[in-house]
Design a protein around this nucleic acid. Structure first.
Lengths: 121, 121
DNA sequence: CCAACATTTCAATACTCGTAGAAATATGGA
DNA sequence: TCCATATTTCTACGAGTATTGAAATGTTGG
C-alpha cells in the first residue's frame, strides 16, 4: 500500500457514518449485508448511505455484488490488513519491540482507558 | 477507545502532510524529534506544521516536550495500538480467523498489489 | 535588557465534504 | 407491459479544512 492509498482509506474511515458502516460490515464478516439492512441499522437515508458506500468502495475497503434487487456490501479484509501494516511499517526505524507492546498489533482487547485533549501537553 | 476518539485519530492521519509527519515520528521511535527537524525533512513552513502537530496532539497520537528552544514531538504508540485494536475489534462477529489472514494483524509486510477505483464493482 | 532563534497564534481565503430532496436506473413479479 | 421495490445519480447548500502571511510568545546567550 502506498501513502496515497493509505490517506484515501483513512479519510474514508474518518467519518462517523462511514466508520459505523464499515464496522458493521467487518462484524458481518465476508458474507456482507445488503445496503438496505445497513441503512435500517444505522438510520441513514438511502442516498446518503450510497454516497458513503461509494467512498468506502473507492478506498478499496468494501466490495459490492448484486443479489436480486439488493446490493450486498462486504468489507475487504485484505485492504484493512494492508492499512494496519502501513501504519506500523518501519516502526521505530525497524525495531518494533520499542513501541509495539506485544511485539506486534493484534489480539489486543483490553482497552478502556480514556485520554482526551490537552491532557498531555 | 471509543468511536469518537477513533474518528478523530483517523481524521488526523487522513492527510498527506500529517501522515508523513506521523510516520516520521513513528520511525523516529519514543525519543521523538524536534519540530524544526520535521519541518526540514518534509519541507513544510513552520506555521503549517504547527497546525498539523496540533491536530495530531489533539487526537492523542503525539506528545510534546520542550527542550531548550525546540519542541520535541514523539508518537504515542499506545494510541496507535488502541486504534488498530478498535478497527479490528468484533471482527467477523468475534471470529477473527475468518478475516485476519494470520489470525491477527501485525508483521505483515508482503503488500505490494495495487487496486484502485472501480476495479471491483 | 536586547537581539537572534524556534515555534505558535491570528486572520483570511480557496477548497472539499456531508447531507438530503428529487429524479433516474435496475430488478422482480402480476 | 405496468407497478412496486432497492439503490443510485443529480443538484444544491452549509460547514469544516488546509494553507499562508504577519504578528506574538517563549528561550538562550552576551
Amino acid at each position: 500500500m502506498e501513502r496515497t492509498d493509505a490517506v484515501i482509506a483513512l479519510a474514508a474511515l474518518a467519518q462517523d457514518s462511514r466508520l459505523d458502516t464499515y464496522r458493521l460490515l467487518v462484524a458481518a464478516g465476508p458474507e456482507g449485508m445488503p445496503a438496505g439492512e445497513v441503512a435500517a441499522a444505522l438510520g441513514l437515508p438511502p442516498n446518503t448511505l450510497s454516497f458513503h458506500f461509494d467512498r468506502l468502495r473507492q478506498a478499496g475497503l468494501v466490495t459490492v455484488r448484486r443479489a436480486g434487487r439488493s446490493m450486498i456490501y462486504a468489507a475487504r479484509f485484505d485492504t484493512m490488513n494492508a492499512l494496519l501494516g502501513f501504519l506500523t511499517d518501519n516502526c521505530c526505524g525497524g525495531k518494533p519491540e520499542k513501541c509495539l507492546p506485544s511485539g506486534a498489533p493484534g489480539k489486543r482487547k483490553p482497552q478502556g482507558g480514556k485520554r482526551r485533549e490537552k491532557a498531555d501537553a
